[in-house]
Design a protein around this nucleic acid. Structure first.
Lengths: 116, 116
DNA sequence: ATACCTGGTATCAAGGAGGATACTACGATG
DNA sequence: CATCGTAGTATCCTCCTTGATACCAGGTAT
């Protein structure tokens, strides 16, 4: 996941790059409600995802500035992830994506039905 | 680009899958204004993209139902791509993405400046 | 005759993202 | 003493996407 290039500073290309991770959108969606711990995130994912992958994905989002990682000095460790300021501003996109995604699912269902 | 799975029918996961192509967002953005020809699309891309890649990308979007391909029986060939109905509904997302992308670019600029 | 135009497809190579597995620290619990 | 829980990192392997290149049709321009 090579990022932070901002080719030509195009908003669309930039957005595409930020969203390139396989789980970025869903992670941002999960973090909307507030801080979530690492293992909790893993359990909440809609598909199985290894902690290796989750870790990489979170690191990328943190590196890009969308999320914040807070570590508590406890045993066992406790790490909470939450949205940064620019991450919170992404909620508008999330809303639009959620709406469109639902409509799209309906669209595909109907199409498949007609084909049968 | 293997698609059309709709895992658990989650809108966010679905959207993520549709947007997985490296150029999907920008292509949808370009098609907002109306039909565009193949070579014209290639020329309008912000980075160089081979016609092989463009062809695959368009095929994926067409297969997903977001765009429509219209072929005119002419020599030399003339093929126009445009948004489908569900593709047009994506414009809300595009708008949000454009706004957020711009803000994000500003955010990154400031961050880099501070670091220096 | 040759090159050029469009809009592709076929094939191969390279790179990167994701998955699987093993390993880590440190304490609590059985 | 051994295992569990958290939150990771390090490595390796594999698959997928992209990129590069060559090739195609069929008519027109030089």
């Amino acid at each position: 996941m090579v990022k932070r290039d901002l080719t030509g500073l195009c908003p669309y290309v930039t957005s595409q790059k930020v969203l390139s991770g396989k789980w970025s959108i869903y992670l941002l969606y999960l973090l909307q409600e507030g801080p979530v711990r690492f293992n909790e995130l893993q359990r909440k994912m809609p598909e199985d995802i290894t902690h290796t992958t989750l870790s990489r994905q979170l690191k990328a989002l943190e590196w890009e500035g969308l999320i914040v990682r807070q570590e508590f000095s406890q045993i066992p460790p406790r790490v909470e992830y939450s949205l940064s300021e620019i991450g919170m501003k992404f909620e508008t996109v999330l809303e639009a994506l959620g709406d469109w995604g639902s409509e799209y699912i309906e669209f595909v269902k109907n199409k498949d039905t007609i084909k049968k």
